[in-house]
Design a protein around this nucleic acid. Structure first.
Length: 603
RNA sequence: GCCGCUUUAGCUCAGUUGGUUAGAGCAACUGUUUUGUAAACAGUAGGUCCACGGUUCGAAUCCGUGAAGCGGCUCCA
């Protein structure tokens, strides 16, 4: 089955789902029912009635009845005005809305429509003459097609879940129920897919976070506020160290800023107007100053830049700060480490002359590439542009030039990219690096952003070679993004088998009996003196010993369960010939104590 | 925030139509065992069944409110 056929099949299943729902709930009103990755969905509004997953059995049963009847999909057309009459008479207000948009603009795609007109009744001339319909059995739907010939030709399917979804993606609109299904040409392929989904759940960072003792949460502390254990903290620190190191090599200096600030700072930056309701507010009992926990760091960094006069000779000025920010995210948006209320950014800001933008962005892109190449992670690059809404500050011509500069930079660096409107920050366009989690969801990690707005708003300056004041450009960059989110994808990417340099516990010595304890002491001296220099410098070896009164089998089982990359097995035979048995994922080999340190540096 | 679902021991999970004192494995603790490649043996202890209300002679179980988590939607500086 080719992609086109698979697409037609999945789309036909969306219609079959609607057919079944209409059969079970006569007054169901329908939104749209498109194909998505691995399946399809249909948006449905049954008024007060809410479908739950316990209804899937009867819906699927009804769907199978429709499939078994092998109803042909019949295409027909209606004049646009007749179609609108049909929608109104069939009590399908959502379809009527779509038809009115079609009549007026020839499209139902929200971003191509005038926002004020969207969903209103279209008067006057039509943008198109007629629209297509498909009918199977008693169910007729506005639809472009294509479909399979008849309902009997739809392969294997399964309803997966039901979710709320705002009509046309706008939270001011009514919320419909979105019924998700997956579908494949054969039962085998469906089973394989479901099995793969189960396997992916084994890599879920929330499961591994608990199993590997990386972080925990507490109802007393609150939602979205993860607590990192000793092991998780090693991971955080080592990743931050690497990220910092990559930029310190390129001339960035560490700075430090406080975690609370007066609101005035964000009023000046423009953040208050846009994100005011997502700030954690603090009031000084002393002065009654309205303060906030910092949700980001760029405004603070501007104040360090502004603290002294800058010459064109000083530029660029590069600041780096890995620090925790606080955002009062809506409860429903929180999830694992991916979206939290306390997020640690490996944040940096370059204040540059316009002629330095290119080299600075090149340097940051090189750092991002180096980091993710070391981690063996392949990321998609998204150029995030503005759209025509009024959500953005600054002059449009500056935006256009900034967007063009970012595009040139990714092309020059030969990054595969895609462009997306409406994804920019309010102050400028972004180059976003997108990582994929265990079940295929994409998350932004690294980002490089060009900003002409904040330097202007904070009246930042430098003196040029003719003695006149100029406004610098800001380049925002985080390589990991938020450390919490980064760890969520990194844990899922590695399945918890971290590279040796990053593993919280790198080496565990497993004893066979207590006749070797003196030899273990000697091994520990060697491990204590072993220093890894790649990719993070001065990375002292993290090791433990397991000399409990337990069987070797049990010790191996536990160490492997904790995904400790190097296990050193030490028994009387090893002691006798001054070797250790080194057990890694690759297998096991004997290494002499004299060469152990070198060996570990090259694992 | 919105829609649907979930919450039982440190962890993973049983627990029938509402019916005595809520169970198991692992982990923990005690004892025995000194062990060569993924779980030694025995015993002991461990619970406000997420919280608070309600229905009932009786609630882990039914209802309400809240919290926390999961899948989406919206949002993401």
């Amino acid at each position: 089955m080719n992609d086109e056929q698979l697409h037609a099949m999945r789309h036909s299943l969306a219609h079959i789902t609607a057919t079944a729902v209409k059969q079970l709930w006569l007054h169901a009103k329908f939104g749209v029912g498109p194909v998505v990755e691995n399946g399809f969905y249909y948006d449905i509004d049954i008024g007060e009635t809410k479908i739950s997953e316990s209804d899937f059995k009867k819906i699927e049963k009804e769907m199978r009845r429709v499939v078994n009847q092998d109803q042909p999909f019949e295409h027909s057309t209606k004049q646009i005005d007749d179609a609108i009459t049909w929608a109104n008479e069939s009590d399908q207000p959502y379809k009527a809305e779509l038809l009115n948009d079609l009549k007026r603009s020839g499209t139902t795609v929200a971003k191509d429509l005038d926002a004020g007109e969207m969903g209103t009744i279209a008067d006057g001339d039509s943008a198109l003459e007629e629209v297509g319909f498909y009918t199977n059995g008693e169910f007729t739907d506005l639809c472009r097609g294509p479909h399979v010939e008849s309902t009997g030709n739809v392969g294997a399917f399964k309803l997966m879940r039901v979710a709320g979804a705002y009509w046309r993606g706008n939270e001011k609109n009514p919320q419909m129920q979105r019924l998700y299904g997956v579908a494949f040409a054969t039962q085998d392929e469906l089973d394989t897919y479901l099995e793969r989904l189960e396997q992916a759940k084994q890599r879920d960072h929330r499961k591994l976070g608990k199993e590997l003792d990386l972080y925990t949460t507490s109802q007393l502390v609150g939602a979205g506020l993860p607590l990192f254990t000793p092991r998780g903290t090693v991971l955080r620190d080592i990743m931050a160290q690497y990220s910092n190191q990559l930029r310190q090599q390129r001339g960035f200096s560490k700075v430090w800023t406080p975690h609370i600030t007066k609101q005035d700072l964000y009023e000046a930056s423009g953040h208050w107007a846009k994100f005011g309701d997502e700030l954690f507010l603090v009031t000084s009992q002393e002065t009654n100053d309205k303060m906030a926990l910092k949700p980001m760091n760029c405004p603070h960094h501007t104040q360090i830049y502004a603290s002294q006069p800058r010459s064109y000779r000083d530029m660029p000025v590069r600041y780096l700060e890995t620090t925790t920010d606080y955002r009062d995210e809506k409860t429903g948006e929180l999830g694992g480490l991916n979206r939290v209320r306390s997020l640690t950014q490996d944040d940096s800001h370059v204040f540059a002359r316009p002629d330095q933008i290119e080299q600075e962005i090149d340097g940051l892109l090189a750092s991002a590439r180096e980091l993710y190449a070391t981690l063996d992670m392949k990321l998609r690059v998204r150029l995030s542009y503005r759209d025509d809404s009024d959500a953005y500050l600054g002059e449009k011509s500056l935006w256009e030039s900034a967007q063009a500069q970012l595009k040139t930079a990714v092309e020059k660096n030969q990054l595969d990219y895609f462009e997306q409107d409406g994804e920019a920050a309010f102050y400028g366009p972004k180059i976003d690096f997108m990582a994929t989690d265990a079940i295929g969801r994409e998350h932004q990690v690294a980002t490089v952003q060009l900003d002409f707005v904040q330097p202007e708003r904070f009246k930042l300056q430098y003196t040029d070679d003719e003695g006149s004041f100029q406004t610098p450009v800001m380049i925002h960059c985080a390589l990991l993004g938020s450390i919490e989110r980064f760890l969520s994808v990194f844990i899922e990417h590695t399945g918890g088998w971290f590279p040796l340099w990053a593993a919280p516990e790198q080496v565990r010595i497993l004893t066979i009996n207590d006749t070797v304890l003196d030899y273990v002491e000697e091994i520990e001296v060697v491990l204590r003196d072993t220093l890894l220099m790649q990719p993070v410098k001065y990375n002292e070896l993290r090791f433990t010993r397991d000399d409990r009164n337990e069987s070797l089998g049990k010790k191996i089982r536990e160490a492997t369960g904790m995904k400790i990359p190097v296990q050193l097995i030490v028994g009387p035979k090893d002691k006798e010939v001054r070797e250790v048995s080194v057990r890694t994922q690759g297998g096991e080999e004997k290494v002499s104590l004299d060469t152990l340190s070198e060996y570990l540096k090259n694992v």
